[in-house]
Design a protein around this nucleic acid. Structure first.
Lengths: 130, 130
DNA sequence: GGGTTTGTTCTATAACTTATATAACAGTAG
DNA sequence: CTACTGTTATATAAGTTATAGAACAAACCC
């Protein structure tokens, strides 16, 4: 698993780590039960402090995406989206979509981009399709 | 124009202000040439410091969405989305969409939500349709 | 011209966030 | 027992957020 993190970015490192892992789950690179790298190992890979990785993992745990087990490490959780999540997510989507429309992008094109991204997730994940 | 800002939110006030104004532009509530409230007036409305409003306006100016005129006030700019914006926006959309997929929402449903939000922008804005 | 409104710039401060560092603790596995 | 995992605590430096007060400069109105 390759996590593309930019240490010089204005986006906090722990947030980038969280985002890349969320994307890896969406892509199917990480599936239910997949182990995540140990916090200290991942921190060493990027040359950052393990507390920063810890913070990213803790965010993912709060969102219910992973489970942290002392001794054995972190693994991806079975997914479960509740109604409050859908509401909160839609509000964030609204802001992001508004930005594209406000900049003059046609709604058709914006929707096509979303479909394209969603398709890229679908084609990447090769679950059990015999 | 009603800007829904939550002073108790973990999201910075200047960011919320920026988001609400971007949404107002997408909705067509604010169109090219529309005046924005004066920084001090808007700050007084929310009971916040005018520097906070200033920061929100400055973000919008950096994104090319508004123009700031000393003496006359801020107005909405003609829109212009360049290729770099599309690239950067798609990356952010990818992260947000990934979050929904990772939480187990079906891609169809996610896309339907996006379409619904985009439609809500289209129906709100009543430009010159005689 | 005189006064008001507008954005702009500067300095300062308190509270919070980000990232680092070191250390110790507590389960799990070999 | 030893080595690995996450967990917790304390400390520090740098940056962000929001506030506050003051002053400046362009545009407008009477």
């Amino acid at each position: 698993m390759i996590l593309n993190v930019d240490l010089a970015s204005e986006v906090p490192i722990y947030q980038q780590l969280r985002d890349r892992i969320v994307e890896a789950i969406a892509e199917g690179v990480l599936t239910q039960g997949s182990p995540l790298p140990a916090t200290r190992a991942l921190a060493a890979d990027f040359g950052i402090n393990f507390h920063t990785v810890n913070k990213a993992y803790d965010l993912l745990r709060q969102q219910g995406l992973i489970r942290l087990n002392r001794g054995t490490g972190a693994v991806v959780n079975p997914t479960a989206a509740d109604p409050p999540f859908h509401t909160e997510w839609t509000a964030r989507a609204r802001t992001l979509l508004a930005e594209a429309i406000a900049k003059g992008l046609p709604a058709d094109e914006v929707l096509a981009t979303c479909r394209s991204v969603l398709d890229s997730f679908r084609t990447t994940q090769q679950e059990d399709t015999p």
